[in-house]
């Protein structure tokens, strides 16, 4: 199990939270996803055997939220 933190551009609408959480949460291998609205971050727990951090990054970007930083631990 790995943890990734993605830094986004300033989030301003509360509906973004739902959009990102639902879409990323649907990804196979993603255990838990949390959008930190006030710190403009997405935290995700995922199984690195099933899904890669880059794939999550891509999904968030496609939703219309460019990923500025990515940190996996």
């Amino acid at each position: 199990m790995k943890k990734a933190v993605f830094g986004l551009e300033p989030l301003s609408c509360p509906t973004c939270i739902k959009k990102i959480e639902i879409t990323v949460g649907k990804l196979n291998g993603v255990e838990e996803v949390k959008v930190l609205f006030n710190s403009n971050k997405v935290r995700a727990q995922f199984d690195e055997n099933i899904v890669k951090a880059d794939q999550i990054n891509e999904v968030i970007t496609k939703l219309g939220y460019p990923v500025l930083s990515q940190k996996v631990s």
Binding site: C13, T15, K18, K19, I22, T23, L63
Partner: peptide, 15 residues
């Protein structure tokens, strides 16, 4: 577009 994206997630947005 934003309104539509939110609607797909079953969220009623201000948009």
């Amino acid at each position: 577009i934003k309104a539509f994206q939110a609607l797909r997630m079953k969220a009623f947005s201000i948009e």
